[in-house]
Design a binder for these strands. Structure first.
Lengths: 150, 150
DNA sequence: CACGATGAGTTCCTTAAGGGAACTCTAAAT
DNA sequence: ATTTAGAGTTCCCTTAAGGAACTCATCGTG
């Protein structure tokens, strides 16, 4: 399976997928985010192949969203999110919101999010960074930007 | 490559990935969103294999995010977003925001978004659906929800 | 009416990625 | 000296992605 390289496309979606678009990568980030930071923890939690987990972790480190560091004098390592990685958690929260809405079924959402600022169980909503009003698919026009393909 | 089924996991991220987690799927949604709604248009724009495009479109239709409908008396079809699919565009906009921030480089973002409400070039920001304050990775606590795995 | 063009897929072959089990390596702890 | 545990490697098998060629239905044109 020779996979097409998304990183070279003039598209920020493709470039983001180049970092976390492979199967498992978002789930690995989630695990690290919730505190499962060690190889065997992640492997056991996800049931992912150890080979693939190694590949994914290295890819995420190469792209600067995870850091690997020893936590013992023995050869033991843990993975942590960089700032670049922490901002990817935004993406995970939007995935959660969509999955909760469309795929949770009668059982309801598997995880709840309590917002520090208001203390309520809530979910994310997309707002315009400029004016603060809701900003969804139908609220925008697309224009070519400076980095557009020629 | 026998792929693990994400749809059965008690995790809304995994369930969302079950719908659009395969390579190319988000880019197909983007194309349909921006008005490339026909098979050959999408194929040419992305450079995706026709075989894989067929598989992806069928998968997205099965999961109710795309609809296929004839636009001619000849056997010609176009794909459109359902409401379920339109809400996935939120996810794309967050991918764009991250890609613009971390991967656009000196050339700047390839596409700009003008917000209808304020008329400004902007990007999305995550807010609490309840109180409207910013809601990012470090602003939430996670609690088990009603649909949590036993 | 025959003929080519067009959109929308299929088919088939090659290559490489995911799954999974077994194996290795290093440094404690007993 | 032996066991244990974490963190990977290695190897084989299956299956998915790439890609080019092929099919099929219908319309427009000469």
């Amino acid at each position: 399976m020779q996979r097409t390289n998304f990183g070279d496309m003039a598209c920020s979606i493709a470039r983001t997928l180049d970092v976390i678009g492979e199967p498992w990568s978002p789930l690995i980030l989630r695990d690290v985010f919730v505190g499962l930071t060690r190889f065997d923890q992640i492997q056991a939690d996800l049931g992912i192949s150890r080979k693939v987990l190694t590949e994914r972790l290295n890819h995420l480190i190469e792209h600067g969203v995870l850091e690997r560091r020893p936590y013992d004098r023995r050869p033991r390592y843990e993975y942590t999110l960089t700032e670049k990685g922490r901002e990817l958690v935004d993406l995970l929260m939007v995935m959660v919101a969509w999955g909760d809405t469309w795929r949770a079924g009668k059982a309801g959402p598997p995880v709840l999010y309590r917002h520090h600022a208001c203390g309520e169980i809530s979910s994310v909503d997309l707002r315009c960074a400029h004016c603060g009003e809701p900003m969804h698919a139908n609220d925008v026009d697309l224009l070519p930007g400076p980095g557009a393909a020629t």
